[in-house]
Structure formats: structure tokens, C-alpha cells
Design a protein around this nucleic acid. Sequence first.
RNA 1: GCCCCGCUGGCGGAAUUGGUAGACGCGCCGGAUUCAAAAUCCGGUUCCUCACGGAGUGUCCGUUCGAGUCGGACGCGGGGCACCA
Length: 863
Amino acid sequence: MARYNPKSVEPKWRDRWAADDVFRTVEDADKPKYYVLEMFPYPSGRIHIGHVRNYAMGDVIARYKRARGFSVLHPMGWDAFGMPAENAAMQTGRHPAELTYENIDEMRGQLKRMGLSIDWSRELATCDPDYYRHQQKLFLDFWKAGLVERRESAVNWDPVDQTVLANEQVIDGKGWRSGAVVERRKLSQWFFRITDMAEDLLAALDDGRLDGWPDNVRLMQRNWIGKSKGLTMRFAFAEDAAAPNGAKEVEIYTTRPDTLFGASFIVLAPDHPITQSYAERDPALQAFITECDKIGTSEEALEKAEKLGYELPLKAVHPFKEDCTLPVVVANFVLMQYGAGAIFGCPAGDQRDLDFARKYDLDVIPVVLPPDADPATFAIEDEAYVGPGTLFNSEFLNGLSVEDGIAAAISKIEEMGAGEATTNYRLRDWGVSRQRYWGCPIPIIHCDTCGVVPVPDDQLPVELPEVAASEFQTPGNPLDRAEAWKRVICPKCGREARRETDTLDTFVDSSWYFARFAAGVEDAPTDPAKADYWLPVDQYIGGVEHAILHLLYARFFTRAMKKTGHLSVDEPFANLFTQGMVVHETYKDENGEWVLPEDVELKDGAHIHAATGSAITVGPIEKMSKSKRNVVAPEEIAETYGADAARWFMLSDSPPERDVEWTDAGVAGAWKLINRIWETVEGAAGGLKDGDPDPSTSPDDATLSLRRATHAAIDGVTSDIEGFRFNKAIARLYEFLNLLRKSDGADIAAQLEALSALTRLIAPFTPHLAEECWALLTEEGRGLVCDAPWPVADPALLKQDLITLPVQVNGKRRSEITAAIDLDPKEIETLALDEPDVKKFVDGKSIKKVIVVPGRIVNIVVA
RNA sequence: GCCCCGCUGGCGGAAUUGGUAGACGCGCCGGAUUCAAAAUCCGGUUCCUCACGGAGUGUCCGUUCGAGUCGGACGCGGGGCACCA
């Protein structure tokens, strides 16, 4: 008996699939459609184990749905623009395009070797002008529809390299290459008005349109959009004073107007117009603002930064207490983008305000009394009280609940004409300008006479100019220096003008690729008829790290494409599955450089560099990422054990939604299994070929129990695949195989039925092995297992007539009874009380009650 | 800092609605086979205890006849935080 040899078997079947073109998408009117999509990869050059996990899951679904008779669309492409290629160009002196296409070729080969059932005829790369020309068209259509606007926005600026930095490139407030302290700088940039859609993006999370999404992702998106109802109100300045910009009052936004009587200061954002007007004549304030600008642009950095304040020579009048004036300060924890860019501080009810008040010695007036607290003694120490309670120290609000207090305060302020109830969103508009080369050019022309002019449709695409590879070794955006490309004739007035040199955020590229796969046509982004057929994506699968940004942007884009006539759905992904990440330890060498796991060796309990023998520091377990180099190449596994073993192993053990830490141990188990299946099928097939496949007779026990096991396996594996429980499907297959290997007594028909079912059940997981087995089991010319129908479980064989019930005494399991499945509870009780092991614990005590849960358990409660 | 998630044997994990904790796999131990090894096959494997029995799902508290599962507090780890993709 020949040992199974994936090296020859796997390529053989892949060639056959390719020759027969079996995975080409067919729009078959007689079949229901199914669009399964995994998040497309960034072409880093090598697939990593996380990709295998992602694409193996998608392939199980795709192959399963094919077998269930669906017309399946399962495409693949490349999220090919982005910083890594530009960084690599900086290091290697090679052009990003050259590097990227080389990487794509490499990775395409690796993915193909995984045996995925992909329709490669639909492959796309976002860096291809054939893709991004349509994206430019979409940008212009969005512009015409009023969904795009231009405005000032801050970026991280490296003053030494004279370049814009991504947040990832800012480490502890310093530029990653220059080490210079990063500043915030304002640039005129392009925005998509995603906030216009906030209400519908939010509503769809709860109205049933996204029932196929995990709850936690919907919750994260809901919190991200952050709808809040509150009060926008104005505080007049004391003594009729005015700020240098002429303002005589300041507008603030609050979600807690009930705490107005606890207000002890007003806070303005550093970039608030009033702040700015003071800064013009106050160098100390200017210095303070510069200091705030060094924090960077990420919300995390802003929130974690030490709370700093600067008092303005200004007092605000409390609207309810005319003799009470509040200091007006500038502080780094208030954001101009949110609400009005100004708040009132209520230290008793907000931890940040409290920290700030303690630091600057401002009043702390408690206004919410926790239930059961004594108003005479209740005081705020180090912790603000944010819970429910009764308002006090608050004049007309005294005695009201927080909720009622909010309503009462809003009506009072509205009555006074000092403000109005408003709805606010935490969500900000989507800034899409990037000062980089390797992205989709923004199809805009700047004319001194006409201003901003869109590039006419017939001049699309605006292609990236040829740029010498050496250009990437100079900091800054090469497009800025591409003078010949920048110079252009204004389409409106015919005078000399300049091209926009910013490119689009790569999130734009990935916000509509699913539509391009499904309905791409040469002369338009989509063909609406095709889009209607395929969209929405029936099953989208990808990493949970994309739970907010990518998925929210894709949802926005779909709405925008609908508004501009490119699509007619408004939600792109009917069902979403967020897989956990593959994580791994991180390693650094003595110079603090990241080291690949494959270069690390464990020697005498210490980690060393395999090549140099130098010491390695082991860092935290983190998601595998190119930047930290903690990636494992699946190629080696596939090389040694075959693609099937790699796929099987990635899907066994860990539940798909959970993070999995990669370890080398265990792959061999998958290899063992593949051999056991092969051996079982090959061994049996030889002796079984003459059997008549009529599995309806032979009632002897071995046959019946094998048939039951077969149908239980079909039923279980089917529901596990439907429910994305691949690890459990695999456990069931192991159980089934173990039983099958011990069922020599069963008749030939039942064995053949079992082998045939096993082969079809493993086909989505280990497709090459399944084809090889199928060829042995079936007559010549009966086709491929990837075209075979999914087995169907016979309900009659799933029924059980006996059941084992555990018997507990006072909640502890003492015995068990076996009874007919529909036995009367009274009789079960009698049976249970008769058990010797039960009597031992019951005798001599009084039975207080007996709980019989049919089909589950018996519990006897004794005193 | 804020939002979300996770925590069960030596390890990955399993456990419909609250109802036998540890399925299945890895590892380990023992045996068979072998000149020997690898591979393969068979058996065992939560911990404590000779046993009877007891303890046990990150920690503490609670609800319940019964809690891995529900509620509260806490701890640790991970993801996201708008220019990494």
C-alpha cells in the first residue's frame, strides 16, 4: 500500500481543476447565487499563516455552497497600494510598482498552491489603472453629489524630514526615522462626508439589515458613531467682555446639562477660534498651543496625555447664577472636532474634569447624590461620581433624577434662549488625502482662476507618473516634485494649472472592490444589473481588527455608490464573520531590530539568533504583522505536509473567531489524519468495489450503528459548517473516522455509504485528498468530488430511542440511568430513586424534592 | 484614557435554552510491532487520595434544586482608537 504523497497528488488535482475550469463563476438562472468573499490581502510578498486561516475558511464555505447547488462567486484580488511598498522603495531603491507586482506574482503562486476554489479570471489589483480609473470616476461622482469636500485638517509633521508621517510612524511623539519631535500641521485636505450618513449607518445596525453580523461588531460601530443627545448652549462673558475675535459668548456642547450647577470652569480646545485669537497677542499661550500640538493626532495619544491647561483673561457667567463667574481655560483634552470644541467642566461628575480641577485647584461641587448617600456628608474625593442618583445643590433641579434633570435643564435653557437641544455624533468625516506617491491620484486640478476643477471623465484615468526609483529615497511626496506631471491645462479656462498631488487613502481602494469583483465592466465601475444579481456579499470573512474602520467605510461607500447610481443595495455584506487573529511572540535582537521567528532558536532555555548565536529578547504575543516581523510562513508546512494538511491544521483546534497563538507542535497531527483517511479509503475501496450501493437492508447491529454514525456525521458536519464551527466539524470527522475504522462487521453497502459520505464531508477542508479518494470510490468518469452533491442525512437514522440521564443528589452527580427517550417523568423518578448509588446518599434523609428535566437530568434534593 | 473581546487539564480546545465539565486533537505514560529506530496500532491520561471520597472552569461576592454558562466587583491578556493594512 503506497503512502499518500501530496507532492504528486495535490498538483495533479489542481491541474485538473484548472484544465476543466471548474471554479469559473457561472451566472446560472436555475441556481441560487452565493457570493463568498475573504478580505483581500496586501501583497507583502509572502502569504502568512493568518492568510491561510482566512482563505481556508472562505474556501470551506465556497466549496460547501457549490456542493449544495449554489452558483458561487469566490474571487481574489490585491489591496496593492500603501506605505509598505514606498518604505521598501526607500530602503532598496526599487520602484514601488515593480516591488508590488513582483510580490503579487509570488503570492498568487502561493495562494494557488493552497488549492483554493477561486475564480482567478476576476483577479484585480487596486494599483492597476484599470481599477483606480473607476475609483477616480466614483470620487468625481461623489463630488458632484456633494459627498466630498475640502477643508483644513491636521497631520503629523516631521520637521527634520519635512514630511507627513502616519500615526504608525510616530513613536513616543517622535518621527521614526529622524527622531525629531513631531508637530501637528494643518493642511488643506479632501474629506468624504460620512457624517451625512451617520443616522442611516447607525439605524441599519439595529433595524435588521445587519442581522448577519456579530453583535460585538455592531456594538463597536454603534459606539464609534457615538450618537449623543445633548445641549448646545452659550455662556456669555462677564462684564460684557469680548474676546479679541469679537466673541462675546462661547458656545459649548454637553450631554449632561443636569450637572450645570456643578460647573466650575469652561474649557476651550487649543485650536478653538477664541483661543487662537488670544494666541495672536499672547506668546505664552502660543507656546502652550505648540506644546499641545506635540501630542500628535491620534486619539489615544490625546487621551493619555497629561491634562494641561492655560487660563484666559476671561470669565463666563453661569446662566442660572448671575453672580457666579467661571474661569475660561484652554486645555489639551478638549477636541475641536467634537461638539462645539468647548465644554463646561463639572469635576464632580467627570473624571477628566476632576483630575483637571484638582491639578489647577478649581471648585468641586457635587450635584448628583448616589442612592443611599447622605447629602450632609457626601463628598467627592479622588473619584468623580458618574452613576445614577438624585440631583442636589442644584436649585430648581433638586430632587430630580439624572434623566429628568437633563430634560428640565434643556427646557430651561431653551426658554431662556441660551441654547437648544442637539444631536451629536462622535463620528468624524473621513479624511482621504494622503501626501504619498503609491496611491490612487485624486482627479482634481487646481487653477488660479477657476479654483478646484474636477478632471473631465474623458481625461481619466489620471495615471501615476513615471518616477525614477531614486526619488523614493528623498523624504516627502515624489508627486510634489513631478513638475511635468503636475503642470496641466485647466479644463475650464485653458490656462496653466496644477494637478492635485495628494493620493487617496488606501481604505478607499478597499471600500468597493467587492462590487468590482461582482459587476466590473470595462467602461464603468459597475454594471448595475450584474451588481443586483450578486450583491450583497452573502458571506464576508476577515480579521476582527477591521471591525470598525474598513467595514464602516465600505458601508458608507455602498450608500454613496447607491446615491450616484452605481449600486442599488445599501449594505454591502449580508453576513459577516470576523475571524480571530493568528498571534505570535515578538523577537528583537541586541540592536533592537525585529527578528523573524524562523531565525530564532531555543537553546538551553534561552532564545538565540539561529545564524549569529546572539541573544534574542522575547516580546509580547501580538497579532502577526509585517512591521514586527513575527510572521510564520505557511509555505514550509505546505512543502513538508501538503496544502491539505496546512488547511486542516489551521481550521482544527481553535474556534475561528478566537485568536490563535501559532505553535509548531500539532501540524503533524493533521498529516497523520490525512494518511489515516487515505489508508482507510484505499484499504476498503479495494475490497468494496463490487458492493451494490443499496444501503437500505441488513439490520444487524454493526451495520445499523455505522449507518447511524454516518448520518450523525453528515448532520453534525453540515450544521457546524453552516455555523462556522470548523473546529467542531473536524472533531466530528475524527470521531466518525475512528468509528468507521472499527466497523468491519457492517455490510458492504453501509461501508460504501460511509466512505462516500466521509469523502464528500472532507472535500471542503482537504480538497486534494478528497478528489484522490473519490477517484478510488467511484466509477470511471463520474466526475470530480468538487462537483458532487453534498450528502444528505436521513432523519430516521438520527433518532435515538434510549437516553442516559445523570442522577444528582443535592447537585452532585452520583449515578446515571438509561431509559427510553420518551419515558414518563414519574417513572424516571422511580428509576432514579432505585439506583443503589443514589440510595447510598438518600437513605436516612428526607427527600425535599425531585427535579426531573426530561432528556437532561434528575436532581434529588435531600435535607 | 475610551470602546470591544477573551480567560476551562501539561497544551489547543468541547460542553443546545443554566442540567454528566474536560468531546476531539496535541503532548506525555504504558504496551504491541521492530535487531533497533522512525512510522503505525492498542490502552491510559484534570488535580488530591491506597481507597471511600473530595476539590476544580482567572479572583471574590451573589442568584438558583443546580452556574464554565446569569448578575455585581476586580485581575490579567488581546484588538481598535480615524495616516499600518
